[in-house]
Simulated assay, not measured.
Amino acid sequence: MTFTKYQFNNFCYWPSNPKKIVEFIGGSYLASKPDLTYKRFIDSLINKNYAVHAYKYTPQFDHQQLAIKAWRDFKNCRISLSKRIGTSIPSIRIGHSLGCKLHLISPDGGRNCEKFISISFNNFSANKSIPLLKQISRKLEFNSEFSPSPERTLRLIEKTYNQKNNFLIKFNSDELDQTDKLFSCLKARKEDNSKGVMLKGTHTIIASAGLRENFLGDWADDEFKRNTIKKISNLIDESD
């Protein structure tokens, strides 16, 4: 039986005796309602006896602030779970799209987890990520960019990110993916153990199943999507 509650901006799913914690951050906008937009993915992890903490956030330009807030909230949820089950258990960090970046620029440099799993890493500039921003900024004569910028993000990862065990997942029909840049950045560090895999699918293959199912019923949940999510959860479990 799984106990579910919302605290510290996280939807927390706690099996009675979980083997590990998954700290999950979803992509921009999708993460405003992760309990719905990532429902099937979360369920697949709970079924493998992981406690899941799915972070809820609203997109903003200051990604560093978002990363710090997520890190603190995950820490508080780990403490709550430890009190509930009477022991501390290891954590795994998983990110999707922008969520990958937020984990990678975490204040602890990835030290306080066993490994990090990146799904469809995205590190685009604000102009590419936000429709019409480039035209508006030119018209109003102001410059807007995410903080840290895409270039600085990669430099920070190479210089300050300390987690050696990273598993990167990309999809063959994903035009938003920048996993190759992340992989090269990680491999530039000493003693890096990062590995990667390519699967069939698109950028949002792990998302929206819960949303469609909620409104349209089980028949709306594509079988390919369902099988891909199962494959990803198996890869996560096997990499332990």
Rank of each mutant, 00 (worst) to 15 (best):
S129H: 08
C12T: 06
T228S: 04
K134H: 07
R189C: 06
T179Y: 07
H203A: 01
A220R: 07
P131A: 05
S88C: 01
F116H: 08
G86M: 05
G109Y: 06
A31K: 00
F121N: 08
S28T: 02
A67P: 01
I119L: 07
D174F: 00
S125L: 01
G26D: 09
R84H: 13
G109F: 05
S137I: 03
S233C: 03
I229H: 13
R226M: 06
K225Y: 11
I92W: 10
K200Y: 12
S97D: 05
S44C: 05
D218N: 00
T204M: 05
D108P: 01
D192Y: 00
T228C: 02
S97G: 10
R78D: 04
L211C: 09
R212T: 15
A220G: 06
N122K: 13
V22W: 04
D174H: 00
A70Y: 13
R212W: 10
I157V: 12
E158M: 03
S16K: 15
S118E: 10
D218K: 05
F11W: 14
D174A: 01
S28R: 05
S97P: 08
K75P: 00
H53C: 04
K5E: 14
K75L: 00
L66I: 15
L235H: 08
P107F: 07
K190I: 09
W71A: 14
L211M: 13
